[in-house]
Design a protein around this nucleic acid. Structure first.
Lengths: 212, 212
DNA sequence: ATAACAATGTTATTTTAATAACAAGCCAAT
DNA sequence: ATTGGCTTGTTATTAAAATAACATTGTTAT
């Protein structure tokens, strides 16, 4: 990957890829920028500018070839390597995301999951074996896992993150409402559902000047 | 609320409020902008600019009064009305967020939840009674609910959203990977966990030029 | 063949967000 | 008392993102 691209563009490329996959399975073979843009909920200009980044060329008459563009975006996002990740903490959120990822196809495989609850260790959740948390480093290296989904309680988040980083993980999807301290080469995506809900409430109240 | 503020600022204000609540419960009474900023993971300049929006004034010598600032942000975000929301779909994600919201205190109360599974209807999940989905409009109006958490399967998302809008809901937190079509006065916050995971994978791979 | 059209790829402009800069204010130390 | 060194609140600057504009290209119809 030559140079890094902005988070927003990456997120939208993932979105386009998903829309393209749906379109492909419905039998369409090509699509114009404005149509694809509408389905993705973005403007046509923005979509074209994003696709410029991956370097795929459509045709002025046919638009974009769906399978070709899809493949091109996939190569851009994933290169040669397929994704391997793990989930730490098989509580409500851990299980929710596991069921979600298992169902859909993201080119990302949840290779292992971890918990310290003895009732969970050894079981298989949605096709994914649960290991004891104290095997975290060992298994992470063994399976060459490079990112992790952190779904442990707030109090444990930083110490587990530290172990992950020791095990050479470079990306963390963090569900704990804590600002993790990580080295500069580790990417953290914070998912804070509480804050998202507060946002919804704020704009539900205020949009269009509605008062109650 | 005089005029609308950007989504990003709102999200950060929610974050500050949470950090302030933690600080308050640990007995500290005032804090400087750079300290609060560090705990929230933002720059001091940005924090001060954000706080400017809510119109709270700190002191150059003491910094911000923690309870005062907290109260001020709360009033800005919530006004006089406390939040009432509902969850539609008590599957894995629905339960996860319900347990999450129940545990923490966001000034937002999950007043009702809905599902069409007869085994769930009538039960109480994390303190929240589950109603039949066909009572959605009725209950939403009855309890004066103004936002909703949409955690139903992709295929049902749009039709449920339509019912919500009919019931006068103005904010939706949408977990379904679909671009909902809603009127302009309805705010939608899309939570797409699959895309978030793909982002993590991309940056885990690319940051600092690491290749494998 | 060629003119007209429509969509692309890319550059230019505008808008928005983040950073930095700095005057004003307050306290402590002298 | 007054200077110095902090902070804050706000304005100015820079950077980033989104939008719009447009020249180019390929296709279709005449």
């Amino acid at each position: 990957m030559p140079e890094m691209i902005s988070e927003k563009i990456v997120a939208r490329l993932c979105l386009y890829r998903r829309v393209l996959a749906e379109l492909e399975s419905s039998g369409i073979s090509s699509i114009f920028s404005h149509e694809l843009a509408e389905r993705a909920g973005v403007s046509a200009a923005q979509l074209r500018r994003d696709i410029m980044e991956v370097g795929y060329a459509g045709s002025p008459s046919k638009g974009y070839d769906i399978s070709g563009l899809q493949e091109s975006i996939t190569r851009f996002l994933y290169g040669n390597c397929k994704g391997t990740t793990s989930i730490i903490g098989i509580g409500n959120i851990g299980r929710a995301i596991l069921s979600y990822i298992g169902r859909e196809n993201f080119n990302i495989n949840v290779t292992a999951c971890f918990d310290e609850d003895r009732d969970k260790v050894g079981n298989v959740f949605y096709g994914c074996r649960c290991y004891n948390l104290n095997e975290l480093s060992e298994r992470t290296k063994q399976y060459n896992i490079t990112s992790a989904i952190l779904a442990v309680p707030e109090t444990a988040a930083q110490s587990v993150a530290d172990k992950l980083i020791e095990s050479n993980i470079k990306g963390i999807m963090n569900f704990a409402p804590v600002q993790l301290k990580v080295p500069g080469d580790v990417y953290v995506e914070n998912i804070n559902l509480g804050i998202a809900l507060e946002k919804v409430h704020y704009f539900a109240r205020g949009k269009e000047g509605i008062r109650y």
